[in-house]
Design a protein around this nucleic acid. Structure first.
Lengths: 339, 339
DNA sequence: ATGAAAGCGCTAACAA
DNA sequence: TTGTTAGCGCTTTCAT
C-alpha cells in the first residue's frame, strides 16, 4: 500500500502539481489550499519518493563527506556524525566518501560515485581539506565544496575554521598566569598549517609576556603519543627542564605525561602539561588534562549550513561563507601554579 | 553532455533493453553481443543513472549502517569504513543511520529515512545489534538485518561474531604460561554478553590450569579507562596483589596501567597487563600493551557479503549466515614472565 | 493561482 | 535471443 502524490491530490481535491508545489514550498499557492494539502499529507503520512524526485528534477539531495583520514579519530567521527545530523535536518543525505589518494585510481572512484549519486556538494574534512588534486577534481565536476579547517588555498572555497592561534595564545597565557616562565612547546609537523598557527599563538603570547623563548624548548612532534613521549623524555632529561609543557594536541600531551611518569615527576606539582583537542582520553587520563575544546558540533553545523545553502552555489566567494569559530579552554588537573 | 542508455544502444546497434540486460548481467544475451555492448559502455564511459534505475526497479541498492554508539570508537569507525568499502565493491551504497534510542521519536526517524531511501538491508553494529525494538522495527519494515557481534537473540538474524571466549582463554593461557598464578580479571558490565563470554573464557582457562579463582580477583568494570583505573587501584592496593591483570578491553587495561604507575609498580616487571581490542592507544602507550586483535575488516566484509546476498533474503535462517571469526593475539611489552 | 501533459532514464512485462 | 511498450513517481513546461 504505497501512497503517492496522486493519492494526496485526490484526497485534497487538487492536482498533483499543486501538491508538488506545496511539497517544494513554491509560491503561487493559496494559503488555504496549502494548509489543506499539508493536512492531507500529514493524515496520509505521505512521503515523497526520493528516486522519482531526483530523476525528474535531476537533483540528488546528496552531500558527500570526503575524508582520507587513515586512522579515524574522535574528531573525525564526531564531525561526520554531526554533519550527518545537520544535513538530514535540511533534507539532504550525507554520504561518506573515503578518499584513497594512495590508490592511483582514486579520482576514477570519485567520478564513478558522482555519476551515480550526483553529489550536490562536498564537505572536506581535514586532512582532505588541503588536498589540492581533490579540490581541483571537485571543481572540475562542478561540485561546490566547503572545507573544514583548511591550511591552504583559503580563497578557494567556503570554509569553516577555528582560531587556532588565538586558542593557543589563550592557553599559553593561562600557563604564564600560573607563574611559569620556563615553558616548552611541542608542535606538529611544519607542513601542518593548524600546527604552525598554534605555535605562532604560543610564541606570540610568550613574547607579549616578555618571556625568553629558548630554542630548545620549541620542538616539533608529529601529533602522535609516541612523539610526545619521546620529546617529553628529551625535555625532562636535560639539566634545565621546563616547569610547563604545552603540546599542540592531546595525544602528544599524554605522551609527555608518560615521560613525566618515567622521570618520577608528579603532575601537576612538578610539571604542568596542557594539550589541545579535548579527546576522550584527555578527560579519562590521570590526572585529567587541561586542554582546548574545539566546537566540533558547531563546525559541522556551519559546514552543513553552507553547503546546503542554494545561495552558496551562486557565489561561493561571499565572505559570509568563510566562518571562524572560537574554542573553549578546558581547565583540568594537569596544570597548576608553579611551585 | 549526459550519456544515456539510448546512446549506448545506438552505438552498439541494439535495443536499450539489451543494454539493460548487459548492465544487469541477465541471461539470454549472445556472448558476442554482450561483449560488443560492454565495449561501447567502456568507450563512452557510460554509467547508468541510479535514480532512474531505482525508480523503475524499486530497488535502491542502499544498505543502512545502524549505530547508536554515543562516542564513536576506533572499532566503530573502522567497522563503518570497511563496510562502506565492501558494500561499494558490490554495487551498493552504505548509508550511516544514527539511532537515537533516547529520542522518543527514534522509530519515526528511521521509518522516514526508509520511506525515502528504501533500505534493502541493514547492518547493526554493537551495541545496536542487541536493541530489540530496533530489530523488531526493521523486521516490521521487512528490511533484512545482519548483526555484528550480538549478544542476544542469536536466532533472530544473520550475524557475524568472533570467538570471544576462545580469545580470552588463549590470552589467559598466555599469562599462565608466563608463570603467573595470581591473575585478576576485570570484566565488563554483566549485561554485555561479549563481556561475559570473555569472562567465561578466562575462568575456563584458569580452571583448566588448576589455578585458584579468587573471588576478589574477578571484578566488573564498565569498559572505560576510569573504571580500569579505579579497579586497578583496588587490586593493587590490597596486601595480596595479583602479578597479572587481564582487562576485558584496552581502555580498562590502560586504566590499570595508570593505577600501576600510581602504585610505583613497573610494567611488566612487577605487573603484567593485557587488554582486548588492539586500539591505537594500546600500541602507542608505554609500555605497549599486549592485547587481542579483532579482525575488524573481515567482520565488516562478512557482514557486507551477507547483507548484499540475494540468497540471504530468501532464507535468513540458513546457518551459512551465522559466521564466526577468530581473533589474533598481539604480544607486546606489557606482559612478561613472573619474576 | 491551478492544471494537463510531457518527460527524467531506466526496468518489467510481454511480444516477436 | 532480442525488441517494443508501458510505466516507476515525481517535476517541468506551458496552458488556462
Amino acid at each position: 500500500v504505497k501512497i503517492t502524490i496522486h493519492d494526496v491530490a485526490k484526497q485534497a481535491g487538487v492536482s498533483i502539481k499543486t501538491v508538488s508545489r506545496v511539497l517544494n514550498s513554491e509560491p503561487h499557492v493559496k494559503e488555504a489550499v496549502r494548509t489543506r494539502v499539508q493536512a492531507v499529507i500529514q493524515a496520509l503520512d505521505y512521503r515523497p519518493n526520493a528516486f522519482a524526485r531526483s530523476l525528474s528534477s535531476s537533483r540528488s539531495y546528496v552531500i558527500g563527506f570526503f575524508s582520507d583520514a587513515p586512522a579515524w579519530s574522535f574528531y573525525q567521527s564526531q564531525l561526520q556524525r554531526e554533519a550527518l545530523v545537520h544535513c538530514k535536518s535540511k533534507g539532504y543525505h550525507l554520504i561518506v566518501e573515503p578518499v584513497e589518494m594512495s590508490d592511483p585510481e582514486w579520482a576514477k572512484a570519485i567520478e564513478s560515485s558522482h555519476s551515480r549519486l550526483a553529489f550536490e556538494g562536498a564537505i572536506l574534512a581535514p586532512p582532505s581539506s588541503d588536498a589540492l588534486p581533490l579540490i581541483e577534481l571537485l571543481e572540475r565536476l562542478r561540485i561546490p565544496v566547503v572545507r573544514i579547517s583548511p591550511g591552504l588555498y583559503e580563497a578557494r572555497s567556503g570554509l569553516v575554521q577555528i582560531d587556532e592561534a588565538g586558542a593557543a595564545a589563550e592557553m599559553t597565557r593561562h600557563i604564564i598566569d600560573l607563574g611559569h616562565t620556563e615553558v616548552a612547546f611541542i608542535g606538529g609537523p611544519a607542513s601542518h598549517i593548524a600546527a604552525s598557527r598554534r605555535r605562532a599563538g604560543f610564541v606570540g603570547a610568550m613574547e607579549r609576556a616578555g618571556l625568553v623563548l629558548r630554542e630548545d624548548f620549541i620542538l616539533e612532534g608529529d601529533f602522535t603519543f609516541a612523539s610526545g613521549s619521546r620529546l617529553g623524555d628529551q625535555l625532562l632529561g636535560g639539566k634545565q627542564r621546563p616547569t610547563a609543557i604545552f603540546a599542540a594536541n592531546d595525544d602528544m600531551a599524554l605522551g609527555v605525561a608518560s615521560a613525566a611518569n618515567r622521570s618520577r615527576l608528579s603532575i601537576p606539582k612538578d610539571l604542568s602539561i596542557s594539550g589541545f583537542d579535548d579527546t576522550p582520553n584527555s578527560r579519562s587520563c590521570w590526572p585529567t588534562m587541561t586542554t582546548v575544546r574545539q566546537p566540533i558540533a558547531d563546525i559541522a553545523r556551519e559546514a552543513a549550513d553552507i553547503i546546503t545553502s542554494a545561495q552558496y552555489r551562486d557565489d561561493t566567494s561571499d565572505p559570509q561563507y568563510r566562518r571562524n569559530l572560537t574554542c573553549e579552554m578546558v581547565l583540568r588537573d594537569s596544570t597548576a601554579p608553579r611551585t
